[in-house]
């Protein structure tokens, strides 16, 4: 996808093909959501993240409502260091939920008792930093993943909530598909907050986007005092109808907004793939044969 703008250098064919592409995308979206016959009265739209850099990477200019999204942490793969990394993912998820709910929306947050034991409970004042108002928050304390998934599904299906977040360990594709269908039926934003395990990275889910979040190691300028804003290394690892990207993002707890610190340009889209040659020098690149035909 990174080469697409270079690829259609001819103006006429570009507009032609882009409309064709849009048409195709619409049709695919129609096919994909065919599972749910329920037509919701809730306007399905997007939740803009408030920063052009991030929103541009997402189809429709934001996180789609009525879809399932996924936030995982890349904090630590070992059992001991997993915890701290997960908090960063949790913070990012809370920020997304806060933006989705806005000032009026209700939120359901499902926690798993097991994770509670290890990492402590969600702290109300800490949540409000990310724009989640505790007064419109319903907390579920599930005994295991099954209960959490069930509660999320019920919450998404009910249509009474703007955002449903759940801390889930492992889940099957089928389970995530169920959540996706429930989200389509209810129109709320579904968010899987996944505890990072070795399996997490490999499993495929039906989520529309997948974000991998880690704390940004102290690269920022020494601020004058204190710690400064929370900073994360955010990678849009999978995005249906969008491209894979990576940013360093800060959260402003006063304006409840993201801010992109440094777009991580030149990062290979897929680890191991060759970086696009000549991107830095601005040279015209010869593309594979297919492009010319």
């Amino acid at each position: 996808m990174t080469g697409s703008s270079l690829f259609f250098s001819n103006e006429a064919s570009f507009s032609d093909k882009s409309s064709l592409l849009a048409d195709l995308k619409d049709r695919i979206a129609g096919i994909e959501s065919a599972g749910s016959k329920v037509v919701t009265d809730r306007p399905t739209g997007v939740v803009p993240l408030g920063v052009a850099d991030l929103d541009d990477a997402l189809p429709g200019g934001g996180l789609a409502r009525g879809r399932l999204h996924e936030v995982t942490s890349t904090g630590g793969r070992s059992k001991r260091t997993r915890l701290e990394g997960d908090v960063a993912a949790l913070g990012f998820a809370a920020a997304l939920v806060g933006r989705a709910a806005g000032d009026e929306g209700a939120v359901l947050w499902c926690t798993n008792q097991k994770s509670l034991y290890h990492a402590g409970g969600l702290h109300g004042p800490g949540l409000s930093v990310f724009g989640v108002d505790a007064r419109r928050l319903v907390l579920i304390d599930g005994a295991d993943d099954t209960q959490v998934l069930w509660a999320m599904e019920e919450g998404l299906r009910s249509g009474a909530l703007d955002a449903v977040a759940g801390e889930v360990g492992n889940l099957t594709l089928a389970a995530s598909r169920r959540l996706q269908l429930a989200a389509e039926a209810g129109g709320g934003l579904g968010l899987l907050v996944r505890v990072s395990t070795k399996k997490t990275a490999k499993t495929v889910t039906a989520a529309s986007t997948r974000w991998e979040v880690a704390v940004a190691a102290g690269e920022s300028v020494e601020s004058l005092e204190g710690l400064g804003a929370a900073r994360w290394d955010v990678r849009l690892a999978r995005c249906r109808g969008g491209s894979e990207r990576r940013w360093q993002v800060e959260w402003n707890h006063e304006t409840h907004c993201f801010a992109v610190v440094a777009p991580m340009a030149g990062q290979p889209a897929v680890p191991g793939a060759a970086p696009a040659a000549g991107e830095d020098t601005g040279q015209v690149v010869t593309l594979p044969r297919r492009a010319l035909g």
């Binding site: 109300g124 907390l139 579920i140 009910s158 009474a160």
Partner: peptide
């Protein structure tokens, strides 16, 4: 209407998981 839906949801969740598992935070 949203309220009615929400209280229905809370009841559904509570009846399955236990009413004490469906909580809110209070200052």
């Amino acid at each position: 209407q949203g309220n009615a839906d929400l209280s229905l949801l809370v009841d559904q969740l509570g009846n399955r998981l236990g009413m004490d598992k469906v909580c809110r935070l209070e200052a």
